[in-house]
Amino acid sequence: MPRGKLRVYLGAAPGVGKTYDMLSEGHRRAERGTDVAIAFVEDYGRALTRQMAEGLETVPRRTMTYRSRTFTEMDLDAVLARRPQVALVDEFAHTNVPGCRNEKRWQDVEELLEAGIDVISTVNIQHLESLNDVVEQITGIRQRETVPDDVVRRADQIELVDMSAEALRRRMAHGSIYPPEKIETALTHFFRAGNLTALREIALLWAADRVEEALLRYRHDHGIQQPWSTRERVVVALSGGPEGETLIRRAKRTASRGAGGEFMAVHVARDDGLAGASPKLLARQRALVENLGGSWHTLAGDDLAEAVLAFARQVNATQIVIGATRRTRLKRLFTRGTGEAIIEGSGDDIDVYVVTHSQAAHGWRPRRHPGTDTDTG
């Protein structure tokens, strides 16, 4: 039996319209003849959401008692028995009441998918496990219900439900999200403009990473070698020389010029076991890369240029940053350096930036190459 497909509507905050969009999608599919059922929807008293749920079959919830209180949860067994083609399951990160078969709703969804049922669900960015601490720093509120990032990233489709901070605050002020008695508190706490702007930016960047992940998978599956530039991704090639810190800082500035840009440092260790760079110097450069938010990669190979270029294409890099050569003029007369080999092998797909530094050989000027810039900063 083929596994079901998962579609997730991702939002930056409550009230952006995730559940409404999920229900709208359910109606569209039902109108095309698909068997759709609501497995669980929480409307929080929002009239528009409640109206959108009308006309769709709802599987009755399961009533449970815990600590003398009554709760209703999605009835997983009833949904499995009903076996719709598409199940609408709100609040992907929800923690089930003790006594349910699974602790988390995303685990319930996993059972539905394994049974061949397609699922459409919703989640807010603050419920992603890796962002829990960041969201607490921004909002002052720690989310108790989380879902592992990898579970969401495995979804077949993720759609970002976007809304500006100003528009969301207007929705709150008009009573479209919370009841009147909660509006003022919400606007002065979680729904402050600064909080919402930060959460929106995090959601956009997280979604952009998901796009990059899907793009890399597509390129791999289809044997596509040339990079596709969806955002700045800078690779800085480090020989282990003292100029490394200059190159790292330049790569960071270059990557930061565009939203969502990132940089990666790569050092190639020789396969032949010959002594290379100072481990102490490399450790210091690695610490700098990580402090600046980059990632460090160590490769093995005898052809340094080939290793750097292969890595750059693998990660869909848009630019490579290298240092001006430290080789003497005599050596340059008889052999081609690693920098020149990188420039010549980069093709038209990757820009190469050659950064001068105090250790560069006196008077050397790199040969220009299409898509190459000699950076003297």
Rank of each mutant, 00 (worst) to 15 (best):
L6D: 06
V8K: 02
L10S: 01
A12E: 01
V16H: 00
D21E: 13
L23M: 13
E25G: 12
E25T: 12
R28F: 10
R28G: 06
A30F: 07
T34S: 12
D35F: 08
F40V: 12
G45D: 01
L48F: 10
L48E: 12
Q51C: 09
Q51H: 12
M64L: 15
R69T: 01
F71C: 05
T72H: 15
T72E: 13
M74V: 10
D75M: 07
A78T: 06
R83T: 08
V86T: 03
V97K: 05
P98T: 04
K104M: 11
W106M: 11
V109W: 00
E111M: 14
L112D: 02
L112M: 14
A115L: 10
G116F: 08
I120F: 08
S121V: 05
N124L: 05
Q126A: 04
Q126P: 03
V134Q: 09
E136G: 06
R142T: 07
R144F: 14
E145F: 14
D162E: 10
E166T: 14
E166C: 07
R170L: 15
G175E: 00
S176V: 00
L187W: 00
T188K: 15
H189T: 14
R192I: 03
R192C: 09
N195W: 01
E201Q: 11
W206F: 15
W206M: 11
A208W: 07
E213C: 09
E213M: 15
H222L: 08
R231L: 07
V234I: 08
A237S: 11
L247E: 01
T254F: 11
A255T: 04
S256T: 10
G258F: 15
G258T: 13
M264K: 08
A265T: 01
H267E: 02
R270A: 15
R270E: 13
D271P: 06
A277P: 11
K280R: 13
R284I: 10
L288D: 01
N291V: 09
L292K: 02
A300P: 03
L304Q: 11
E306D: 14
A307I: 12
A310F: 03
R313N: 14
I322P: 00
R336T: 14
R336H: 10
T338Y: 08
I350N: 05
I350C: 00
V355W: 02
H357K: 08
S358Q: 10
G363I: 05
R365P: 02
R368W: 07
R368Q: 12
